[in-house]
């Protein structure tokens, strides 16, 4: 992996960030979690900013009044015991929760200053910019090349169909470039470059997951959401994914859900701890959260007393 940084040199930093200074401050925080536990000050504008987010599945409350700001070009880890709503939270950030019909979302989520739950929002555009990697690798039953080129082709970034070839608009070179860049970025190019036309389902689990990351990168997102991306993998594959995530943070904003606290401590810049009932209990710099948590319950959780 040589030149990923130069390839991604001009990552989208020039997008307009709206003023969000006049956002109303939430007042009704829970008694047991003072604002100071979840206030995390950082330089620059937040990439994603969540305010008073509630999610219900029917009568079950999955998230309870979450407010959090996520800085760009960093790794933010979301940890907590299972069922605490961290995956639900992640799926709110690119509105994948819309696909679960019973989910009811209140509150605001802003991406670069724009409310992503407002009317007229272009879901396609949002998901292009806020990509996602899932818990279990889910490559399409196509060749490795087709898996990577799938997004750019469908978004019209590259045109390689028969008509494009006939009319001299063939972008095959550009497509090859995207495929190679994405695979390199996902640290899997060396392993698959001699068999790009093989079916992706023939890869090992760890390779499949890195392929899914590459597939996500090919669409050129700004934020990458990862939902326990290493939970289905063996330790070696997990280590590779972790290295990869740290590298990706130089260019992208990564938000990762994990139930593995060592993993969160190793790779993340800041950590948010969710506890049962869908509440955000503590949020801050990773070192501080792990070494000197403000909340007793977080300390208990991190030291393994429950969870």
């Amino acid at each position: 992996m040589t030149d990923t940084s130069s390839l991604g040199a001009n990552a989208p930093t020039d997008t307009t960030v709206a003023e969000n200074a006049d956002r109303p401050q939430t007042t009704d925080r829970h008694e047991d979690t003072p604002d100071s536990w979840t206030d995390y000050a950082f330089e620059g504008e937040p990439k994603l900013s969540v305010d008073g987010l509630d999610v219900h599945y029917g009568s079950d409350q999955a998230l309870d009044d979450i407010s959090i700001e996520i800085p760009e070009q960093s790794v933010t880890a979301l940890i907590g015991p299972s069922g605490c709503g961290k995956s639900t939270f992640l799926r709110c950030l690119n509105r994948m929760n819309d696909r679960i019909r019973a989910a009811e979302v209140d509150g605001t989520v802003t991406f670069e200053g724009q409310d992503i739950y407002q009317d007229g929002l272009d879901l396609v555009e949002l998901r292009k910019r806020v990509g996602m990697v899932f818990q279990a690798p889910n490559p399409f039953p196509k060749s490795i090349r087709d898996n990577i080129a799938y997004g750019p082709r469908k978004h019209g970034t590259v045109q390689t169909d028969l008509l494009a070839k006939l009319t001299g608009r063939d972008d095959s070179d550009q497509e090859d470039e995207i495929v190679e860049r994405s695979l390199r970025q996902a640290a899997i190019w060396e392993e698959v470059n001699d068999r790009l036309d093989d079916n992706a389902l023939g890869l090992s689990g760890g390779q499949q997951q890195r392929l899914c990351i590459a597939r996500c990168l090919a669409v050129d997102p700004e934020v990458i959401l990862m939902d326990e991306p290493a939970s289905a993998l063996d330790p070696i594959a997990t280590a590779k994914i972790e290295d990869l995530i740290e590298e990706l943070a130089e260019e992208y904003t990564v938000v990762i859900v994990t139930h593995n606290m060592q993993q969160a401590a190793r790779i993340s810049d800041q950590t948010a701890v969710f506890l049962t009932g869908g509440r955000l209990v503590e949020y801050g710099e990773t070192d501080q959260v792990f070494e000197n948590p403000k909340s007793q319950r977080v300390e208990d959780y991190i030291t393994g007393k429950f969870g």
Binding site: Q114, I116, D122, P152, I178
Partner: peptide, 14 residues
């Protein structure tokens, strides 16, 4: 780097 033309995230439709 971006091959995709940046389009508006929010579209006014009416």
């Amino acid at each position: 780097m971006s091959y995709t033309a940046e389009s508006e995230l929010v579209v006014d439709n009416t």
